[in-house]
C-alpha cells in the first residue's frame, strides 16, 4: 500500500503523479478517487498531465483516452489498457493498493 496524500490536497478535477518504479497517477473525479499506471501504454507520456473529463483521461501527447475505471483505451494510438489500482481512503489520507504487474493490463 502506497500513501499518496491527504484528500484535501487532491481537489476534484485534479491529478497527482506518485513516483514509484512504475509511477502511478491518482485522479479525483467529483470526489471519487481513481488510480492507474501513470505512463501511457502508447509511448512516453505522463497521464497525470493529461486532460480529465468525466471518468476519462486524455493522454497529453497523442490524445488516446483511457477509462479510469477499466484502464481501457477508447481508440488509437494506444492499443493496450493501463493497469488500474485500488484506492483506499482512510483518516483523510489517500492510499493506493498497487495491482500485480501483468494483471489488469489485459
Amino acid at each position: 500500500m502506497i500513501t499518496v496524500c491527504p484528500t484535501s490536497s487532491l481537489p476534484p478535477g485534479e491529478a497527482i503523479r506518485v513516483p514509484a518504479e512504475e509511477p502511478i497517477a491518482v485522479f479525483n473525479v467529483d470526489g471519487e478517487f481513481f488510480a492507474i499506471d501513470d505512463t501511457c501504454t502508447h509511448q512516453d507520456a505522463s497521464l497525470a498531465d493529461g486532460w480529465l473529463e468525466g471518468c476519462t483521461i486524455e493522454c497529453p501527447l497523442h490524445a488516446s483516452c483511457f477509462d479510469l475505471r477499466t484502464g481501457k483505451p477508447s481508440g488509437p494510438p494506444a492499443k493496450v489498457a493501463v493497469r488500474t489500482h485500488q484506492v483506499v481512503v482512510a483518516d483523510g489520507m489517500i492510499h493506493v493498493q498497487v495491482s500485480a504487474a501483468a494483471e489488469g493490463a489485459a
Partner: peptide, 10 residues
C-alpha cells in the same frame, strides 16, 4: 510543460 500545455491547447 505538458500539463499546462494541455490546458492551453484545450
Amino acid at each position: 510543460q505538458p500539463r499546462l500545455f494541455t490546458r492551453w491547447r484545450r
